[in-house]
């Protein structure tokens, strides 16, 4: 599905990623973990075209997408729920969701049944149904997170990238978010999950990459990373 090789990217003159190579196979849930500032978010931003990579290759299937503007990458089937949620505050929840399906509604992607998908989102996130007419800016942080995820899903994406879906949420909501991710995984959707809650992320993932200072420091099946003493000591804390 996705194959990233020697990706170099950053902001202006500051280089953040120094040759990142990762792979996401069809139907897998791959997680990218690591401490603050390791380059996880920058990786996702480069993958979705929010920033242009300086060098390296990003292959979506057989298509090279490195350097394409973000709207073209989205139209190719990559949905990115960005850090900080970034919902559209002055638009109601329902419009936020419709905009997630923008490429489908405008002929850039197969249309499918957007009304049925909207209904599915409301089943997945019942809070959003209650709030459908409310402006997204007035939602709580947890609700905004659900909206950001649902909005990304409205693309009917081939690859769903989630950036820190648990950020700023109460422990109960974090649990809820991870339960949702597990449910999505069961539907067979391919996912790339960036998380600071490494333990929880490795719990749901098939495969994991550990990032350090803009490089991949370790990788392996999630179960193995979970048991790796070095990974445990550095990222999973004493509790595990």
């Amino acid at each position: 599905m996705l194959k990233v090789e020697k990706l170099v990217a950053g902001y202006g003159k500051v280089q953040v990623l120094h040759g990142v190579s990762i792979e996401v196979a069809d139907g897998q849930l791959v997680t990218l973990i690591g401490s603050n500032g390791a380059g996880k978010t920058t990786t996702l931003r480069a993958l979705s075209g929010m920033i242009a990579p300086q060098s390296g290759s990003i292959k979506l299937g057989a298509v090279e997408i490195a350097g394409l503007p973000s709207h073209r990458i989205t139209r190719l089937g990559v949905a990115h729920s960005p850090e900080g949620r970034r919902v559209f505050p002055t638009l109601p929840v329902s419009d936020n969701l419709l905009l997630g399906a923008f490429p489908r509604l405008t002929g850039a992607r197969p249309k499918g049944d957007t009304a049925a998908d909207l209904e599915k989102m409301f089943e997945l996130f019942p809070r959003l149904r209650e709030r459908r007419t409310q402006l997204a800016g007035t939602l709580s942080g947890g609700e905004q997170q659900m909206l950001a995820m649902a909005r990304a899903l409205m693309l009917n994406p081939d690859l769903l990238m989630l950036d820190e879906p648990s950020m700023g949420l109460s422990p109960r909501l974090v649990e809820e978010v991870f339960a949702t991710i597990a449910r999505l995984k069961a539907t067979g959707i391919t996912m790339l999950l960036v998380e600071q809650f490494a333990a929880a992320a490795l719990e749901v993932a098939d495969f994991g990459y550990v990032m350090e200072n803009g490089r991949i420091a370790a990788s392996g099946p999630a179960a193995r990373l979970r048991d790796d003493p070095a990974v445990r000591a550095a990222y999973l804390g004493a509790a595990h």
Partner: peptide, 14 residues
């Protein structure tokens, strides 16, 4: 309106 709200996020919507 989405572009006016948040240009980067609008790009992510395609």
């Amino acid at each position: 309106i989405a572009t006016a709200n948040d240009r980067d996020a609008a790009g992510l919507m395609g």
